[in-house]
Write a protein that binds this DNA or RNA. Structure first.
Lengths: 230, 230
DNA sequence: CAAGCTGAAAGTGTCGACAATCGACGCCTA
DNA sequence: TAGGCGTCGATTGTCGACACTTTCAGCTTG
């Protein structure tokens, strides 16, 4: 047991290795739409831009490849993953699978703190909807679903959700707004939370299904409109 | 488009990049228990043994890290992931979530070919059980579940299942036999296939739950016995 | 004028090397 | 004798270099 370790609140000064930092930067660039689907991610160019060598860039690219954000083409390099309508469909299928489970599990272990967190997040979304801030709403939407997965108490499930969300952001990042009606997004979340608080598995699944079904249709429609008019 | 590419049945002679090969070798070593949990994976040693440089080894290690097989400890290297009872519990929770979905979906899209494949796999398991070949049974067991996930028609779901199975193999690989009774394993699979063929979602979920619940208890018990007596 | 060929430039796959850091051993001190 | 400290070896993190492959622009040719 360490005796003279820092008492509390260590600031974790600078992540030790460049790989994580590069991975983060690339991820940000992709989900923000700065690196559009199909774009080439040239190791040398990235390395030059960041003022480092190619080795950490390569490792970061591998990391993002395993997350589905990049696609490796041997001897040709890495490219930002292009998502077809089928890909989006698959991703939403998994989201359904994961979030049903997460919501039911979250209801089983719901603590007052979690419930409060979810309610607060819903308030944030309502406020953003009132102000009609599409970009922030997408972020708040993600956070709400993430909180549910967090409340499920399964770290791997949370990581899985993050991975699915990241991949979906490849396409969602392309547009500013996901829903036509900003108000609607907050409204469709309310029954989900209500069902979780009530704790009826069937109702939870039903509402999660409905909510994700709506989002799925929106995104699939979006992807099709994008791929048809390049 | 390449013109003079091999017509058919390419034997995939030496994958172009070493990274995949190294990743495969390391994965095999881990799931076969040759690299036990907690073991250090020294880059230089692996590189020397394979007669290559450290760069591909590093990249392969990153890959395996993102799959949960290795754990990166900054400035200290990579180690084979150690799974606690909680980890195993989490993994089985996800398996439940994934395989329920896969089985229901597989039932919806079941083709005669798939049904035949599942039946044949069950026959293989029965035969192995009769011969009492524990190691092969674990493999056949895995293949049966994998076929169900394949039949679900979602490539990502299949990859997810493979990832979960790989992680679980870290511990399963430690022992030769998973079940006390080799015959039992084949028996517990039969109702699952029957339910899929019948196509009743509730019955499918119920049988999958029961089957995976049995396996989960076995593995959790195993892990506890291993961690208590190192 | 279009299609195919040729050469150079750019980029990837891999390697060996160097500095920074971690762990271990032995030494010193109380 | 127990505990802390400094040094040494080993390993990681990062870098620049080289060979081979792919790409593309310009030229040649039917």
């Amino acid at each position: 047991m360490r005796a003279i370790s820092p008492p509390v609140g260590l600031p974790v000064l600078a992540e030790s290795d460049l790989v994580r930092q590069v991975a983060r930067r690339l991820t940000d660039a992709i989900v923000q739409g700065r690196l559009p689907p199909g774009a080439k991610v040239a190791e040398a160019a990235v390395a030059r831009e960041l003022g480092i060598s190619r080795a950490p860039v390569r490792e970061a690219a591998r990391l993002l490849e395993s997350q589905g954000l990049l696609k490796a083409s041997p001897r040709r390099g890495f490219f930002v993953r292009e998502l077809s309508a089928k890909d989006v469909d698959e991703l939403y299928d998994l989201r359904l699978c994961v979030e049903r489970h997460a919501a039911v599990e979250a209801a089983r272990r719901l603590t007052p703190a979690m419930r409060e967190g979810l309610r607060r997040q819903l308030d944030v979304m309502r406020e953003l909807a009132r102000r009609d801030d599409p970009a922030m709403i997408v972020e708040a939407d993600y956070q709400f679903h993430r909180l549910i997965c967090e409340a499920a108490g399964n770290a791997r499930l949370l990581r899985l959700f993050d991975g699915l969300a990241s991949e979906l952001r490849i396409v969602i990042g392309l547009i500013g707004r996901l829903y036509d009606d900003s108000q609607e997004i907050a409204r469709t979340h309310e029954p989900v939370l209500a069902a979780i608080e009530a704790g009826h598995p069937e109702r939870i699944v039903a509402h999660v299904d409905h909510h994700i079904g709506v989002a799925r249709r929106e995104v699939v429609r979006l992807v099709q409109s994008l791929t048809l008019t390049p």
